[in-house]
Nucleic acid binder design. Sequence first.
DNA 1: GTCAGTGCAAACTTTTTGCAACTAC
DNA 2: GTAGTTGCAAAAAGTTTGCACTGAC
Lengths: 162, 162
Amino acid sequence: MDSQNIRETVRQIFTEYLQLHGHRKTPERYAILDAIYSYDSHFDMETLYTRMADEKKFRVSRATLYNTILLLLDAHLVVKHQFGSSTQYERCYLSHTHHHKICTQCGKVEEVQDDALRELIEQSKLKQFVLSHYSLYLYGLCAKCNRANKRKLKDNIKKKEK
Amino acid sequence: MDSQNIRETVRQIFTEYLQLHGHRKTPERYAILDAIYSYDSHFDMETLYTRMADEKKFRVSRATLYNTILLLLDAHLVVKHQFGSSTQYERCYLSHTHHHKICTQCGKVEEVQDDALRELIEQSKLKQFVLSHYSLYLYGLCAKCNRANKRKLKDNIKKKEK
DNA sequence: GTCAGTGCAAACTTTTTGCAACTAC
DNA sequence: GTAGTTGCAAAAAGTTTGCACTGAC
């Protein structure tokens, strides 16, 4: 499915969701959905806010953004992530669930694709619980920070020996 | 290992960590570590702050709490979770890594133990990355909210048909 | 004695809320 | 017409920071 097609499909899904839940179909809501589905990757509220004003020429208030994101989360069209200290969102319709490697030192986030693991998690039987989605965050050190730390540690030990 | 023994062991680990990194061994730091290891479950900063003052009779400032938690995270004696919108911490020395079921509606968090899945995640080969720990958050509806939603949905469809 | 660490309050960031104006229905 | 939504600004919640003081080394 191409990008244009996806955007039309998610609009339909959103419309159904809004109808079913008795919410109004406002232009703001569709503009926000459309903006989100025009990005490929993660974004935070500030980015969405400024990008919508700059690129999409559609200014909505922050309050409306937060409001609409709540609906989109509930409609399973967007997922929320909280890596480290920053809250990020991501579109999720027709995008493969992936995992995230987060460097605990520099904060860099990378996506990891592991279909075998994905299936195992999705098939894990949970008592008294209806799984809708999940997040797997793998914390550790990226190659760069790992090297830097090893150097630092060596220096400290040397200092101590003096 | 009994609870008293664990507390002594983590003190030692923390002492080594502080020495290695050239930090001072202040009474506040040990009091915070001890408080954290006297709880079995998750806690947030506010809870830790008030509990330390009330139960432990040891008042530390919020600044020092945040400060010390950073060290404990780095020393792998505490893990940080960000479910939904609340940030929670949890001791992690000698406690089995577990997964979390989070109800997207009422926010209830439950621990899930699945050793097979745990091992698979821990053994997943990651290129250019040194895994230290991970978090698996399973989002969905708890039995209670699921029932409530089904009722609500039925009502909305009925309304629509009128 | 020195400087890392602490407490305090102010600042800052992110998210929520109250209310008047607006508009989808 | 009217109730759900929006925008704005103020408030709240959570975390960080600057600075004077303290105490671990």
